[in-house]
Every structure is written in C-alpha cells, then in structure tokens.
C-alpha cells in the first residue's frame, strides 16, 4: 500500500519505456499503455492510483479516455499530459475531473510532484470513505449484512 501504482498512457513507445524505467527506479510501480483502449484494459486488470494521460493520441483520444476512466473508476486520479501550446484541452480535462495537467516537455521531478499530490488526494479521499463506512457500521451494524457486496 505504500508505493504509488502509476499508469502512463501515451502513443510514444520510447517515452513509455524510458519513463517506466525511471519511475520504477524511484520506487513507483509503473504500468504503460500505448492508447486509450489499452489503458482501460489495464485498469480492468490491475489496481492503479494515478494515470498520466496524453491528450492527443490516435484512436481513442485523451479526453474520451478520461471520460471513460472517470465513469468507471471515479477514485483513480488522472493527470493530463498535453503537447498543445494552448491549454484548452487540458482545461477541458480538468472540467471532466482530471486532477491536474502537465505541459510537454516536462521533466520527471515535475511529473513526480504532481503525481504525489494526486496520490495524496486519492489517499485522503479513500480515508474519508473508509471513515464514513466505519461510522456507518458502528451506528448501523446490521448494514454490513445488508449491502455486503459493496467494498
């Protein structure tokens, strides 16, 4: 539970492999996906805390992928990676629930910093949810049995 689990989505294969090595070195468990569809597949199979998502990709583009991720995994934080000179698409992303955006080109420390913040936010959120659940169990112990499937 201590290490951040990261998913990088970008169509630049070399960027994916290099960043993966760099992140792993910094103790971050990193998964990669070359496109939006693959990213959703990865999310289905593995547990991920933060997604770094390129805005412009062939096939399913970043904004569309963000929508789907947020619909299916609302707690997963997404950081948009944009190559556009304008921040329009990044702002669009924020409106759709992205945590923050990073402008290309950006170095690893910058990405790490934002990623850490996103992770902290997710942790805090999960903590809050846990507390609410515990409180609910304490006040209504029977609720545990009513909706056991929910976790």
């Amino acid at each position: 539970m201590n290490s951040i689990r990261l998913l990088i989505v970008d169509d630049e294969e070399r960027f994916l492999s290099t960043t993966k090595i760099l992140m792993e070195k910094r103790g971050i468990k990193t998964l990669t996906a070359p496109g939006g569809a693959e990213a959703l597949q990865v999310l289905d199979e593995a547990r991920v805390d933060v997604v770094i998502l390129d805005v412009k990709m062939p096939g399913m583009d970043g904004v569309e992928t963000l929508k789907r991720i947020k619909r299916k995994y609302p707690l997963v934080e997404v950081i948009m990676l944009t190559g556009h000179a304008s921040v329009d698409s990044a702002v669009d992303g924020m409106k759709l629930g992205a945590f923050d955006y990073v402008m290309k080109p950006s170095d690893i420390p910058e990405i790490l910093e934002k990623m850490q913040k996103a992770y902290n936010k997710k942790q805090a959120m999960e903590e809050k949810i846990r507390k609410v659940k515990i409180e609910r169990i304490i006040s209504h112990p029977m609720a545990v049995f009513e909706k056991n499937g929910e976790g």
Partner: peptide
C-alpha cells in the same frame, strides 16, 4: 504555430525523459 508546438513538443518530451535517464 500551435501545430508546430505540438509536433515539436512530443520529441522534446522523449528527449527530456532520456536526459533524466542518462542523469540517473
């Protein structure tokens, strides 16, 4: 210019991560 920026920023991003790699 928006197009140019986008097109150039992608390779720049790759270069930046490679540079970090070399530093590491």
């Amino acid at each position: 210019s928006a197009g140019v920026a986008h097109e150039v920023n992608n390779p720049l991003q790759v270069m930046m991560s490679e540079m970090t790699m070399i530093k590491d």
